[in-house]
Every structure is written in C-alpha cells, then in structure tokens.
Nucleic acid binder design. Structure first.
Length: 262
DNA sequence: ATGGTGGCACAGCCA
C-alpha cells in the first residue's frame, strides 16, 4: 500500500482555492494539510473538495491563521488544540487517517527575536513538545507536518550569513526544533538527496523566488515506523511559478507499507 | 533600499 501525504501553506484559501484544486487533481495525494487558510471553519469550501474526491476537516478563524486537512479517506478523532492551552489562534489539527496519525501545524512566525510574538512562539513550541510526546505514545504511525517557521540548519537558508540569528533561524528556535526531533522524529526530507538550496518558502518582496532567496521552513517529521516506510520526500516548486501564488510551495512525502491487517 | 509584496479588510496588522 502506498500513501502520499503533503503540506502547503496557501496564504488564504479564498484566494488560492483554484491552485489547490488544480494541484490536488494533478498530484492526487492521499492527504493534503493546509495552513493559513485565513477563513472560519464555516466558510471552508468543503463542497469544492468533495467534488474532486476529498473529505475535509477545518480549524479556522477570521482573518488570520487557520488549518485544515483534506483526505481521500475517512478523517477520524480530530483534535483542534493542545490540552490545557487556551490559544485563540487556530494552528493545530491532528487526526487519524487509515491508521496513521497526522498532526498539521502552523507554528507561530515569531515576528522578531526578543518580541512578544517570539516569546509566544517559544512557549508554543514547548507545549507542542509535550503534545507530541503524548502522540508518539498513543500512535504507532505518526506524521507531524506543516509550516514550522523554523529553518532547521544553515543548509536550509539561502544566505545564512546575511540571515544570521534572525527569527526563523535563531538558536532558541532551532534548539526547540531539535528537542522535537529528540522525541523520536525525523526531518524526513533529509533522508534523501536534494540539490543544494532547496527551499519551500520565498518572500514576496525583493523578487525572492526569482533569486531563489528562500528558506526551507515547511517540514515533514516522521516517527520511526513512518521514516522506515518513507520512499520519497520532495518540494514541488511548480505552484510557486503560477499566477498569484502562495509564498510557500507544497512539500510531499511518499510511503510504502507491506500489506498488513488492521 | 530602515524598504520591498501580498492578504485581510478597509487602517493597520501580519507574514
């Protein structure tokens, strides 16, 4: 059995719905998780996804943030927030699909090092670690993916010296990410060969995409069972070339499992 | 370049 799971920060699903539907029908992932849908759950275009063969669950809000999961298969046991953390920002959607736990994250951006938003990001990452520790215990197959707003290493930055220790690359953020990995998760993109300067986000400003001035901040983390089953992980830059694109590109992981009894 | 572009929603915030 093969499974294809993808993540995409769409920067407004209202604007990007045609791109998402085009990409879904062309690439046919089993699961696509979205970030920054920037609309309420009620406004989520479930019928448009249903028409192309996908079920959906949304965790949205007005104006900012918002995440969703679309899937060719049943989406069960959804969780919309961390326990004991009353976060008004909709950034989490965990659900089980065909026996695999999928955790969709829109990790806070952090604005700039030292700011209130940066402190919120670090606190959020701390709560995330506790949540994922529990998810790892509860589920045999776990995939944690989304917009992490952290470039794991300098290899994930177009100009590491120029970027320095600014937000998305600062030591405390990278340390927090390493602590997530230390729970037993793998940044599965790095299990495969890729060209240098492979990125998933390019700033709209200053012709970032044309100059490949980007970062790899959209990640797919897998537990050992999923890492062992992963056959490919790659970034699809094509939608970033389309008219009126998101500033992020989709990231895809493919898995192959031996036939099992579930 | 102390900016630049894009989305939301209609002034300024967020990324």
């Amino acid at each position: 059995m093969s499974v294809k799971i993808a993540t995409w920060n769409v920067n407004s699903l209202k604007v990007r719905l045609p791109h998402v539907l085009e990409w879904l029908t062309a690439n046919k992932p089993d699961v696509l998780v979205l970030q920054e849908i920037k609309q309420t759950s009620d406004a989520f275009p479930a019928a448009a996804f249903s028409a192309v063969g996908y079920q959906s669950v949304a965790n949205g809000q007005k104006t900012y943030n918002g995440v969703a999961v679309v899937s060719r298969f049943e989406i069960s046991d959804p969780v919309f927030e961390f326990p004991d953390f009353a976060d008004p920002q909709r950034r989490v959607l965990a659900a089980t699909i065909n026996g695999t736990r999928v955790v969709n994250l829109y990790i806070p951006n952090g604005s700039e090092v030292g700011s209130e938003k940066y402190a919120y990001k670090l606190g959020w990452l701390n709560i995330l670690r506790d949540f994922l520790a529990g998810e790892l215990l509860r589920h045999q197959r776990l995939v944690v993916l989304g917009d992490f707003n952290i470039a794991p290493t300098d290899a994930d930055v177009y100009d590491p010296e120029g970027w320095g220790d600014a937000v998305l690359c600062s030591p405390l953020e990278r340390q927090a990410l390493r602590e997530l990995l230390a729970l037993g998760l793998t940044d599965v993109f790095r299990k495969f060969e890729h060209p240098e300067k492979s990125f998933s986000w390019w700033d709209y400003r200053a012709a970032g995409f044309r100059r490949n001035a980007g970062l790899r901040i959209d990640l797919i983390l897998t537990n050992d069972a999923m890492t062992g089953a992963c056959t490919a992980c790659y970034i699809d830059k094509e939608p970033r070339t389309w008219d009126r694109p998101s500033d992020h590109a989709p990231v895809i992981a493919e898995f192959h499992f031996q036939a099992t009894t579930i």
